[in-house]
Computed example of a mutant assay.
Amino acid sequence: MTKIHHYTLGSGKSIVLVHGRAMHSGVWRDFAKQLAQHYRVTCVDLPGHGYSESCDAFTLANISAALVGAVEDENSCWLGWSLGATVVLDLAARYPERVNALILLAGNPRFVQAPSGLDDNWPGMAVDIFDTFANNLRNDPQSTLAQFLSLQVQGLPYAKTTLRQFKELLSECSFPCQNILQSGLALLRHSDMRTVLASLDIPVSVILGTKDVLVPVAVGQYLCDNTSKIQLTSIEGAGHALFLSHTPQVLAVISQFMDEQ
């Protein structure tokens, strides 16, 4: 079994925080401390990220199995940010007995648009833009990752401050290896969890930022039109790293959602 680094704060209803691609659990630190004033919060490093061991293959099946094996709480709300949203959707489908609610934070069930020619108006990232990013990451990982971080705070009034905070947190651990980075992109490129999301029989909260350039806020309306169980919140002026830039607003939404369970 892959050894997963994790830590737990607080007491009460259980929430597990799953970070995004190329990140680690340290990005949650201040946010998790505030959340832990009311809940039992567990932060995990994805396989091959932070202090976690790499799994044989960075697939959703292996990731979900590793996380479920590491988290002690038998029944939790799983919160996934960005790529983490894809992971927790998969985990809820494979291990429904371990999940009592989901929170998708700046995440969506399908990251990219449908291939050209298909009758699908899904408001994801254009495939050609995504593929260009993947190629740039392979050829110049450091510059591409720096650009990726900048995109997460683009358009925010305190972008420089948030970006500096972001970089300081991430510098505590080495970036994942190239294989893990590319595998993470492949998951975003090919995973389509819309059917999974529609079939879930648990409460789901979707929290989006209106200025997010990676996950369009239009995703929220599409989900509400097609899945009746979703509670949608759009935070005005927030980008992709909304738990850093708009912490009080995100905490308020999570608290209300958790208190309803």
Results as ranks from 00 to 15, higher is better:
W122L: 06
R29T: 14
A126H: 12
H190E: 14
V88G: 00
L244A: 05
A92N: 11
R94V: 09
T144Y: 03
G20F: 04
S82R: 03
S199F: 06
A218D: 08
K13T: 13
Q221R: 11
G107F: 04
G69I: 08
C177S: 15
S25F: 05
W122E: 04
F31N: 01
P109C: 06
A241T: 13
Q154H: 12
A70S: 14
A36N: 05
P96N: 11
G237E: 06
T227D: 10
A22W: 03
H5G: 08
F58Y: 15
Q147D: 14
R194F: 09
K229W: 05
S174R: 10
A159L: 07
F257R: 05
A238F: 00
L79N: 05
A57C: 10
K33W: 05
I207P: 00
F133W: 10
G124H: 08
E72V: 13
I254C: 06
F175H: 08
L35Q: 00
Q142I: 13
N139C: 12
A238K: 03
N179C: 08
L105D: 01
Y95S: 11
N226K: 11
W78P: 04
R110L: 07
I63Q: 03
L46Y: 02
S174A: 15
F58A: 02
D120I: 07
K167F: 01
Q154D: 10
M1Q: 09
F175R: 12
Q165S: 13
Y158R: 13
Y222F: 12
C77Q: 03
S52P: 03
Q256L: 09
M125T: 11
F148S: 08
V27E: 05
D30K: 11
T195P: 00
D90M: 04
Y7Q: 11
C77M: 10
R189P: 05
D120Y: 04
I63L: 11
R21S: 12
T161A: 15
V112M: 09
V112P: 01
L163V: 09
E260Y: 06
Q152W: 05
V99C: 13
E53A: 15
Y158M: 13
D120E: 12
R189A: 15
S25H: 01
I103D: 00
D73M: 10
T162W: 00
A57N: 12
G48H: 03
Q256C: 11
L187Q: 11
P141A: 10
V213G: 03
P203K: 11
A66S: 15
A114V: 09
F243V: 08
D56G: 06
L232G: 01
G209E: 02
H190Y: 14
D56N: 12
E236W: 02
E236K: 14
W78I: 07
S205H: 04
Y95C: 09
G239N: 07
Q231D: 13
Q147H: 12
V44W: 02
Q113E: 15
Q256E: 14
S205D: 00
I4Y: 02
P96E: 08
A106P: 00
